[in-house]
Protein backbone atom coordinates (compact mmCIF):
# COMPACT_ATOMS: atom_id res chain seq x y z
CA UNK A 1 0.00 0.00 0.00
CA UNK A 2 1.25 3.52 -0.70
CA UNK A 3 2.52 5.21 2.43
CA UNK A 4 1.08 8.68 1.85
CA UNK A 5 -2.65 9.12 2.55
CA UNK A 6 -3.39 10.56 -0.89
CA UNK A 7 -0.59 8.89 -2.82
CA UNK A 8 -1.65 7.11 -6.03
CA UNK A 9 -0.83 3.47 -6.65
CA UNK A 10 2.36 3.36 -8.74
CA UNK A 11 1.14 0.38 -10.79
CA UNK A 12 -1.92 2.34 -11.94
CA UNK A 13 0.19 5.32 -13.02
CA UNK A 14 2.65 2.98 -14.74
CA UNK A 15 -0.13 1.26 -16.67
CA UNK A 16 -1.63 4.50 -18.04
CA UNK A 17 1.78 6.03 -18.68
CA UNK A 18 2.90 2.89 -20.51
CA UNK A 19 -0.23 2.93 -22.69
CA UNK A 20 0.27 6.54 -23.69
CA UNK A 21 4.04 6.45 -24.13
CA UNK A 22 5.12 2.84 -24.82
CA UNK A 23 8.43 1.76 -23.38
CA UNK A 24 8.80 4.70 -20.99
CA UNK A 25 8.17 2.82 -17.75
CA UNK A 26 11.02 0.81 -16.35
CA UNK A 27 9.60 -0.46 -13.11
CA UNK A 28 6.77 0.24 -10.77
CA UNK A 29 5.80 -0.58 -7.22
CA UNK A 30 2.65 0.36 -5.41
CA UNK A 31 4.40 3.50 -4.18
CA UNK A 32 6.16 4.89 -7.23
CA UNK A 33 6.75 4.56 -10.94
CA UNK A 34 10.24 4.53 -12.39
CA UNK A 35 10.72 5.97 -15.87
CA UNK A 36 13.59 5.84 -18.35
CA UNK A 37 15.96 8.67 -17.36
CA UNK A 38 16.41 9.99 -20.92
CA UNK A 39 12.62 10.29 -21.33
CA UNK A 40 11.95 11.83 -17.91
CA UNK A 41 10.83 15.18 -19.26
CA UNK A 42 8.39 13.49 -21.62
CA UNK A 43 6.86 11.52 -18.73
CA UNK A 44 6.52 14.63 -16.54
CA UNK A 45 4.99 16.57 -19.42
CA UNK A 46 2.43 13.83 -20.03
CA UNK A 47 1.50 13.58 -16.34
CA UNK A 48 1.25 17.38 -16.16
CA UNK A 49 -1.06 17.61 -19.18
CA UNK A 50 -3.07 14.45 -18.54
CA UNK A 51 -6.62 15.03 -17.36
CA UNK A 52 -6.69 11.84 -15.35
CA UNK A 53 -3.55 12.64 -13.35
CA UNK A 54 -3.42 16.44 -13.56
CA UNK A 55 0.02 16.67 -11.93
CA UNK A 56 -0.06 20.45 -11.81
CA UNK A 57 2.61 21.04 -9.20
CA UNK A 58 6.06 19.65 -8.56
CA UNK A 59 5.88 19.68 -4.81
CA UNK A 60 9.29 18.21 -4.12
CA UNK A 61 12.27 16.80 -5.95
CA UNK A 62 15.44 15.44 -4.45
CA UNK A 63 18.21 12.98 -5.10
CA UNK A 64 19.28 9.87 -3.20
CA UNK A 65 22.77 8.42 -3.49
CA UNK A 66 22.61 4.61 -3.61
CA UNK A 67 26.41 4.14 -3.72
CA UNK A 68 26.47 2.81 -7.30
CA UNK A 69 23.74 4.90 -8.82
CA UNK A 70 21.61 7.95 -8.09
CA UNK A 71 17.87 8.10 -7.71
CA UNK A 72 15.95 11.29 -8.45
CA UNK A 73 12.55 11.37 -6.79
CA UNK A 74 9.79 13.69 -7.98
CA UNK A 75 6.68 14.21 -5.89
CA UNK A 76 3.96 15.55 -8.14
CA UNK A 77 0.78 17.00 -6.75
CA UNK A 78 -2.63 17.45 -8.27
CA UNK A 79 -4.40 20.31 -6.53
CA UNK A 80 -7.80 19.70 -8.15
CA UNK A 81 -7.95 15.93 -7.74
CA UNK A 82 -5.95 15.94 -4.49
CA UNK A 83 -3.56 13.11 -5.10
CA UNK A 84 0.17 12.68 -5.16
CA UNK A 85 2.25 10.82 -7.74
CA UNK A 86 5.81 9.71 -7.09
CA UNK A 87 8.05 9.43 -10.14
CA UNK A 88 11.62 8.18 -9.97
CA UNK A 89 14.48 8.18 -12.42
CA UNK A 90 17.67 6.22 -11.88
CA UNK A 91 20.98 7.62 -13.06
CA UNK A 92 23.44 4.76 -13.49
CA UNK A 93 26.58 6.78 -14.19
CA UNK A 94 27.87 7.55 -10.70
CA UNK A 95 30.90 9.51 -11.89
CA UNK A 96 29.16 11.98 -14.16
CA UNK A 97 25.44 11.77 -13.47
CA UNK A 98 23.13 13.69 -15.76
CA UNK A 99 19.37 13.91 -16.29
CA UNK A 100 16.98 16.03 -18.36
CA UNK A 101 15.76 19.03 -16.39
CA UNK A 102 12.16 19.27 -15.20
CA UNK A 103 12.26 23.06 -15.53
CA UNK A 104 10.57 23.24 -18.98
CA UNK A 105 7.54 21.55 -17.40
CA UNK A 106 7.69 22.90 -13.85
CA UNK A 107 9.15 26.30 -13.08
CA UNK A 108 9.30 25.21 -9.46
CA UNK A 109 12.26 22.99 -10.36
CA UNK A 110 14.50 26.03 -10.85
CA UNK A 111 15.94 26.20 -7.35
CA UNK A 112 15.35 22.59 -6.37
CA UNK A 113 17.50 21.30 -9.23
CA UNK A 114 20.20 23.80 -8.43
CA UNK A 115 20.21 22.44 -4.90
CA UNK A 116 20.51 18.84 -6.15
CA UNK A 117 23.30 19.88 -8.49
CA UNK A 118 25.15 21.63 -5.70
CA UNK A 119 24.85 19.01 -2.99
CA UNK A 120 24.50 15.79 -4.97
CA UNK A 121 26.31 16.64 -8.20
CA UNK A 122 23.66 15.60 -10.70
CA UNK A 123 23.68 17.74 -13.83
CA UNK A 124 20.40 18.74 -15.41
CA UNK A 125 20.39 19.22 -19.18
CA UNK A 126 18.20 22.08 -20.23
CA UNK A 127 18.26 23.88 -16.89
CA UNK A 128 18.59 27.60 -17.64
CA UNK A 129 20.84 28.55 -14.74
CA UNK A 130 22.68 25.55 -13.34
CA UNK A 131 25.09 26.92 -10.75
CA UNK A 132 25.96 25.98 -7.21
CA UNK A 133 23.54 27.54 -4.78
CA UNK A 134 24.54 27.01 -1.14
CA UNK A 135 28.23 26.31 -1.53
CA UNK A 136 30.71 28.48 -3.36
CA UNK A 137 32.14 27.75 -6.80
CA UNK A 138 35.21 25.62 -6.40
CA UNK A 139 33.97 23.78 -3.32
CA UNK A 140 35.53 20.31 -3.54
CA UNK A 141 32.95 17.59 -4.12
CA UNK A 142 29.25 17.27 -3.44
CA UNK A 143 28.53 16.76 0.26
CA UNK A 144 25.32 14.75 0.10
CA UNK A 145 27.06 11.96 -1.79
CA UNK A 146 27.69 9.00 0.44
CA UNK A 147 31.37 8.87 -0.54
CA UNK A 148 31.95 12.55 0.25
CA UNK A 149 34.01 11.92 3.37
CA UNK A 150 36.14 9.32 1.63
CA UNK A 151 33.88 6.46 2.58
CA UNK A 152 33.90 3.90 -0.22
CA UNK A 153 31.06 1.80 -1.52
CA UNK A 154 29.96 -0.96 0.80
CA UNK A 155 30.40 1.14 3.90
CA UNK A 156 27.75 3.51 5.13
CA UNK A 157 28.28 6.90 6.62
CA UNK A 158 25.21 6.57 8.83
CA UNK A 159 24.88 5.10 12.29
CA UNK A 160 25.39 1.36 12.53
CA UNK A 161 23.79 1.33 15.93
CA UNK A 162 22.33 3.76 18.36
CA UNK A 163 25.11 5.17 20.56
CA UNK A 164 23.57 4.07 23.84
CA UNK A 165 22.10 0.84 22.62
CA UNK A 166 22.91 -2.09 24.86
CA UNK A 167 24.78 -4.45 22.58
CA UNK A 168 24.56 -7.43 24.93
CA UNK A 169 20.82 -7.12 25.26
CA UNK A 170 19.43 -5.21 22.27
CA UNK A 171 15.95 -6.58 22.88
CA UNK A 172 15.66 -4.54 26.01
CA UNK A 173 15.74 -1.42 23.89
CA UNK A 174 14.01 -2.77 20.84
CA UNK A 175 11.13 -4.64 22.45
CA UNK A 176 10.45 -3.71 26.04
CA UNK A 177 8.58 -6.40 27.96
CA UNK A 178 4.83 -6.07 28.16
CA UNK A 179 4.83 -5.08 31.83
CA UNK A 180 7.29 -2.27 31.22
CA UNK A 181 5.34 -1.00 28.25
CA UNK A 182 2.14 -0.94 30.30
CA UNK A 183 3.88 0.85 33.16
CA UNK A 184 5.28 3.43 30.79
CA UNK A 185 1.94 4.15 29.20
CA UNK A 186 -0.08 4.43 32.37
CA UNK A 187 1.75 6.55 34.90
CA UNK A 188 0.54 6.30 38.49
CA UNK A 189 -2.19 8.69 39.45
CA UNK A 190 -0.87 12.10 40.44
CA UNK A 191 2.60 11.42 39.09
CA UNK A 192 4.12 13.07 36.05
CA UNK A 193 7.28 10.99 36.37
CA UNK A 194 7.85 8.22 33.85
CA UNK A 195 9.03 4.88 35.14
CA UNK A 196 12.76 4.98 35.91
CA UNK A 197 13.74 2.64 33.07
CA UNK A 198 12.42 5.09 30.52
CA UNK A 199 14.07 8.36 31.24
CA UNK A 200 15.58 8.82 27.81
CA UNK A 201 13.63 11.67 26.27
CA UNK A 202 12.70 13.35 29.53
CA UNK A 203 16.30 13.69 30.54
CA UNK A 204 17.53 17.30 30.53
Amino acid sequence: MPKGPTQLDGHLVAERLGQALPGIVQRSTDEWVEVRPERLQEALRWLHDSEEFDAAQLSNCCGVDRHHHFEMVYHLQSLDLNHQIVVKAIVLDHDRPSLPSAYPVYKGALLQEREVYDLMGIEFEGHPDLRRIFLWDGFPGHPLRKDFLGIGAGLTSGLARFPYEDKTDPDRIMNPPESMRAAAQEPEAGSQEPSPEWRGEQHP
Partner: peptide
Protein backbone atom coordinates in the same frame (compact mmCIF):
# COMPACT_ATOMS: atom_id res chain seq x y z
CA UNK B 1 11.40 12.78 2.54
CA UNK B 2 12.86 10.04 4.70
CA UNK B 3 14.53 6.90 3.39
CA UNK B 4 15.21 4.13 5.88
CA UNK B 5 17.58 1.23 5.35
CA UNK B 6 16.50 -0.44 8.57
CA UNK B 7 19.12 1.31 10.70
CA UNK B 8 18.54 3.70 13.59
CA UNK B 9 19.43 6.76 11.45
CA UNK B 10 17.75 7.80 8.21
CA UNK B 11 19.60 6.77 5.05
CA UNK B 12 18.45 9.98 3.40
CA UNK B 13 16.78 12.95 5.06
CA UNK B 14 15.44 15.66 2.81
CA UNK B 15 13.59 18.71 4.05
CA UNK B 16 11.32 20.35 1.51
CA UNK B 17 11.65 23.93 2.65
CA UNK B 18 8.70 26.13 1.67
CA UNK B 19 10.55 29.45 1.96
CA UNK B 20 13.26 28.19 -0.37
CA UNK B 21 10.97 26.86 -3.08
CA UNK B 22 8.64 29.87 -2.82
CA UNK B 23 11.54 31.95 -4.12
CA UNK B 24 11.43 30.14 -7.49
CA UNK B 25 9.46 33.00 -9.02
Amino acid sequence: YLVSDGGPAPYRFHLRAPSFINLSL
